[in-house]
Nucleic acid binder design. Structure first.
Lengths: 128, 128
DNA sequence: TTAACTGTACTAAGCCACATAGAACAGTTT
DNA sequence: AAACTGTTCTATGTGGCTTAGTACAGTTAA
């Protein structure tokens, strides 16, 4: 499914969260699709199941997946409805990032072009 | 100068780095301006001088400030020349951020408007 | 020269997040 | 019944973070 980056010094459970989130955000995983079981992913990454569980628990808290006892964990549909606080945080992070890129004299046209491209691919209007 | 956020669970030296960086990036601190001494900032934040030193050491490694023994630490001029690797990292982070905002159905016009505004204020062309 | 200030470099100690190992419970599926 | 799911414990070890204290080296102002 994916691999861990051993050059990355962030906690394993954080890396797992990011990888799963990336799969969801990119559309590689669809709503209600099953993510690997705790034990299965632990085995494939050669790490402890408790670490996977911690990652999944936080992903659930943040609204990306939901877990059902004895069945598995699945991608949350209608994610966009849930998370105004997270949206605000992301916009603040965006501000910091853009401010630093501006400080480095990266032309704003380059940033805007990136946005256009990312919105161009894989996006369909979502009206719920 | 600034205060630490005790709701923030990131390491103190990381928080200090971010605060100083923000002051530099926003233009609140000018090139060659002196940042507080290790001991002075430690006293005003009521934390250990070693922790400040660790923050400053990393800020120097990343090119934001330079330190002179027995004189002090100062904001680096011509920062934009130094750091191509960091620039690449920031652009990758930008991609992730934008991808997630797109997934949340935040209109791209909103992001572009933010960029225009941030580039509008405080920016003058830098040709060296 | 002296006193007070700068950055820098150690050692020692304690706390806590992270990760592992191992076991168990509860419910589903075949 | 067996094999799978998520979930919840305890116990253990490692390493990063922070503090405290001391010291060295160089600058600056009295």
């Amino acid at each position: 499914m994916f691999q861990l980056d051993y050059m990355d010094h962030s906690p394993l459970y954080e890396q797992i969260k990011e990888k799963i989130k990336a799969l969801i955000i990119s559309g590689a995983m669809k709503p209600d699709e099953k993510v690997p079981s705790v034990r299965e992913l632990a085995q494939s990454l050669t790490i402890n199941p408790n670490t996977i569980h911690k990652a999944y628990k936080e992903l659930e808290l943040e609204g990306y997946i939901y877990s059902v006892r004895a069945k598995g964990s699945f991608v949350t549909p209608i994610y966009n409805k849930i998370n105004q606080a997270r949206k605000d945080n992301l916009l603040l992070e965006l501000d910091k990032l853009v401010a630093e890129l501006a400080y480095m004299n990266v032309p704003k046209e380059q940033l805007i072009a990136r946005i256009e491209e990312l919105y161009g691919r894989g996006r369909q209007k979502n009206n719920d």
